[in-house]
Computed example of a mutant assay.
Amino acid sequence: MTNFIDSPYVKEFSKITFRLYDHGWDERNGGNISYRLTEEEVSQYDDVHDVLRTIPIDFDGKELAGMFFLVTGTGRYFKNIIDFPERDSGLVRITEDGKSINILWGFNDGGKPTSEFPTHLMGHAARLKVDPNQRVIMHCHPTNLIALTFTFPLDEKELTRTLWKMQTESIVVFPDGIGIIPWMVPGNSKIGNVTSEKLKEFSSVIWPHHGIFASGTTIDEAYGLIETIEKAAEIYNIIRSTGGDILQLITDQQLTELAQAFGVTPKEGYLEV
């Protein structure tokens, strides 16, 4: 018998949730991840073919009907998923009417997906229109990026330009820039709708004073995107904390040269060259 808990998907999921916790970005039960899997990937396991429970969702997910998602559980601590993946995460399938999810594996103590799951589903739907290979939505609380939202104007162009100039890698990793929404109460369809609209334009969205909502074609890509944004925010905060003058920056011309060298297209109108 081949069980889903032994799959590379659960192992990868468990590893990355612990690393997010270990970075200090997912304290307590903060943060959530959803990982879209294909029917071919799921069907090879013997213990995922029966519906264990059906749960309604606060989102019309009909355009995602039949899709499978490995998702973190509500109220669950990221530090524990590596030891208890079948308790603190689960595999779900969106029902054909898009109004419910079928739990196929996991949440074995009666739990259910993160309260942010409708927001994740809205995000997946938005990003799939941009990139049909999109598979991951990752939400966490990077310390330096959150701190930045208290001291920097919440302007997408200016924040993106500043973080591009903090390190050579930034424009290569997030050439599409970073979206920003107003502060909002999390865990409801309102923030999901606003975030998903931004995800049509940006691969990552800042929730001020809260964290980041990022997407990717793989778990590594989404994680690496957040790592790079957080590193740039950390560098900016260190520079500010010294109180000294900035003597040099990466220029817009140099950013243009970087983009050309690495074959990426910067957000239109963000560079002044």
Rank of each mutant, 00 (worst) to 15 (best):
T2M: 08
F4D: 08
I5V: 15
S7K: 02
P8R: 12
Y9N: 00
K15N: 04
F18Y: 15
L20P: 01
H23L: 04
H23M: 10
H23E: 15
G24C: 02
E27L: 08
N29M: 04
G30T: 11
N32T: 04
I33G: 03
E40H: 00
S43M: 07
Q44D: 00
V51Y: 02
I55F: 15
P56K: 06
I57K: 00
E63W: 05
L70C: 11
T72F: 13
K79R: 08
K79Q: 07
N80R: 09
F84T: 08
P85L: 06
P85G: 07
E86S: 10
R87A: 06
S89Q: 07
G90D: 11
G90P: 08
V92C: 09
R93L: 12
R93D: 10
I94F: 15
I94S: 14
I94H: 15
T95E: 10
T95K: 11
T95P: 07
D97C: 06
G98W: 11
K99Q: 12
I101W: 04
I101M: 12
W105V: 03
G106K: 01
G106L: 05
N108E: 14
N108D: 15
K112N: 06
T114D: 13
T114Y: 07
H124A: 00
H124Y: 01
A126F: 06
R127I: 12
K129P: 03
D131C: 04
N133F: 07
Q134I: 01
V136N: 15
C140I: 08
H141G: 02
H141F: 02
P142N: 09
P142W: 10
T143W: 07
A147L: 14
L148K: 04
T149G: 08
F150E: 13
F152N: 02
P153S: 13
R161F: 04
Q167A: 03
T168Q: 04
T168M: 03
S170I: 03
I171R: 03
P175N: 04
P175K: 01
P175L: 05
D176A: 13
G177E: 14
P182G: 12
P186M: 15
P186Y: 15
N188H: 06
S189N: 02
K190G: 05
G192I: 11
T195F: 09
F202V: 03
S203L: 07
S204I: 10
V205T: 14
W207T: 10
H209D: 10
H209W: 09
H210A: 06
F213C: 13
T218P: 02
T218C: 03
D220K: 00
E221Q: 10
E221C: 00
E221S: 07
G224M: 06
L225P: 00
E227D: 09
I229S: 04
A233C: 10
I235P: 00
I239Q: 08
S241L: 11
G244C: 01
G244H: 03
I246P: 03
L247M: 07
Q254I: 09
L255Y: 06
L255S: 09
L258M: 14
A261S: 07
G263L: 12
T265F: 07
P266T: 10
Y270K: 03
Y270S: 15
E272A: 14
